[in-house]
Nucleic acid binder design. Sequence first.
DNA 1: ATGACGTCCTGCCTGC
DNA 2: TGCAGGCAGGACGTCA
Length: 304
Amino acid sequence: MPELPEVQTIVDDLNKKIIGRRITDVWFDTPKIIKKPKPAELEKQIKGLKIVDVRRKGKNILVYLTNNKQPTTNDFLLLIHQKLTGHLLYGKWQIKKVSGIKYQVSSLISGSLEEKVNNYIHLIFYLDNDWQLALSDLRKFAKVLFGPKEEIENLPDLKKIGPEPLARNFDISAFQNLIKRERRKIKQVLMDQEVIAGIGNIYSDEILWQAKIHPFMPTYKLKTYQLKNLYKAMRQILQKAIKLRGTSISDFRDTGGKPGAYTEIRKVYQREGEPCNRCGTPIKRVKIGGRSAHYCPKCQSNCE
DNA sequence: ATGACGTCCTGCCTGC
DNA sequence: TGCAGGCAGGACGTCA
């Protein structure tokens, strides 16, 4: 599932590939993904706009557009949240109607890493260079919002998101201040997008393993040295994962369809029963609020 | 304030 | 072999 490093990988790719392009057309077969405006309105409103920037806020991809007339009052924003299984792909596809509402989307690029037929592409933006930006999503949980920049930026979807863990001004004391007032288990706090942006199930497990902290540890009980370790682990692991272009457990792919390399060096996530890299103890998996947590019962035994 | 659970969705795995 | 049932999981809503 795309978390901060995976989304950053996509955003970096898009900055190389789609800046300056104009959107010439839109196709979709799953209207529920488009939360704003009304799905039928999207094409009319976005057609002709030029892509000027692509950024990330938490796990959200932000595509900034303009109509080039009066830039300050005519800027627009396309927000894409990939949720569990969404990915943005840059390529060329052909759409064939199979029946009333069924379509078949197949890649026109020979040697493409993507399978020839992609049953999960539900939304395509056509660009003025003959290429396309497609949203593929097996579970159809992804969400897309589009509108005037100010309006989208002020929606709770973006407004409520906490600070970026890798931001230069997010130092140890800023981190401590946020974390210390929490009463929940540390794993849940790390994954709460309103506390810190971009961390999900995979990286919270990895960060806690590196910091040697039990996922169930009540946050207010963390000692100062543990908070320091946690902060350091968070920055290190996220940076490393960005360098390796993310983790591909569920089915993350970059915009060219390639998996991320962090998968190879992960220490706990989906390694239940395998030996801990530090002490050899089998990795344990437990449920916490409907999510699974993976940890080493020996290295991370400091609960209670 | 916290937590537990249901919802969305579908490929995959298990068990009979 | 085949099919039913359970599971995963980010964000959000509901209820205790």
